[in-house]
C-alpha cells in the first residue's frame, strides 16, 4: 500500500482501516478527497453522495462516481448490502432524522463510519454553562442562527443511539486540536469523535 495523502484526522483514520478493494459509499463526500485517496491507494470501489452540485461536478471531473443527493432522500434507493462501508462524515448532526439514517447506513453498508463534532467538549460546556450563550468554537464555528447543525449531540448520546438501534460500536476514535486523543474522558476532551458501527 502506498502512502495516503494528508487527510482530515477522521478521514485519515477511516482510510487507514478500510481494507484494499472494499466497496465504499461516502455520504457527503464533498470534493471527493477521501474517495480519491481510497480509489488511488487502496483500489477501493469508491462511490459518493453529495448534495452540492458544484462539488459533484468537481468529483465527476476527477473521474469519481458521485451522485448528487443526500442521506435522507437518496440512501433508501440503494440496495441492501451494496457496500462494505458507508461513511457519514460530520453530517449526522445536520440531518432531520438521525436514527433512521443510522439504520439506512447499516442497511446499504455492512458497517458504517460516523463522525461528528462532540457538543459535550469542555469549551462548549464553558460557553453555554458559564457564558450563557450557544457555543461558537473552532469545532463549531458558526453561530446558532447560521449553523447547519440542527441536531447537536455528544459522544454519550451517540453511543446510546447506536445501542437503541440494535447496532454496536466496533471501534472509536477521538480527536482534539487536530490530533487523536485517548478514550479517557473523551466526552469532555474530544472535539470530534469517529465511530465504526456494525450491525448488532
Amino acid at each position: 500500500m502506498s502512502t495516503l495523502p494528508d487527510l482530515r484526522p477522521d478521514l485519515a483514520a477511516i482510510a487507514g482501516i478500510i481494507p484494499d478493494g472494499s466497496r465504499v459509499l461516502d455520504i457527503g463526500c464533498g470534493e471527493g478527497t477521501l474517495l480519491a485517496a481510497l480509489a488511488e491507494h487502496k483500489g477501493v470501489d469508491a462511490r459518493g453522495l453529495e448534495i452540492d452540485p458544484e462539488r459533484v461536478a468537481t468529483c465527476v471531473a476527477h473521474g469519481l462516481s458521485v451522485v448528487q443527493g443526500d442521506a435522507e432522500a437518496d440512501l433508501v434507493h440503494y440496495p441492501d448490502d451494496a457496500f462494505d462501508y458507508a461513511i457519514l462524515g460530520q453530517t449526522i448532526q445536520m440531518v432531520d432524522r438521525p436514527a433512521e439514517v443510522i439504520d439506512e447506513l447499516l442497511r446499504v453498508g455492512r458497517a458504517a463510519f460516523v463522525s461528528f463534532p462532540n457538543f459535550a467538549h469542555w469549551r462548549m460546556r464553558v460557553a453555554l454553562g458559564l457564558g450563557g450563550r450557544m457555543p461558537v468554537t473552532p469545532a463549531l464555528p458558526e453561530s446558532w442562527h447560521a449553523t447547519g447543525n440542527i441536531r447537536n449531540l455528544t459522544v454519550v448520546d451517540f453511543k446510546e443511539l447506536v445501542a437503541d438501534r440494535g447496532a454496536r460500536i466496533e471501534r472509536a476514535w477521538y480527536f482534539a486540536k487536530g490530533r487523536e486523543i485517548g478514550e479517557f474522558g473523551a466526552n469532555l476532551r474530544a472535539e470530534f469523535a469517529l465511530f465504526l458501527v456494525e450491525r448488532g
Binding site: D45, R47, P53, V56, A57, C59, V60, L64, S65, V66, V67, Q68, G69, H77, Y78, P79, A82
Partner: peptide
C-alpha cells in the same frame, strides 16, 4: 435522471449524477 440513477445503483453499476443549473 434520478430514475435512471436509482436503476443503475440497483444494478450495481458505477454511476455519477449531477443536476446543473
Amino acid at each position: 435522471g434520478r430514475h435512471i440513477v436509482r436503476a443503475l445503483n440497483a444494478a450495481g453499476a458505477p454511476v455519477s449524477f449531477v443536476e446543473l443549473s
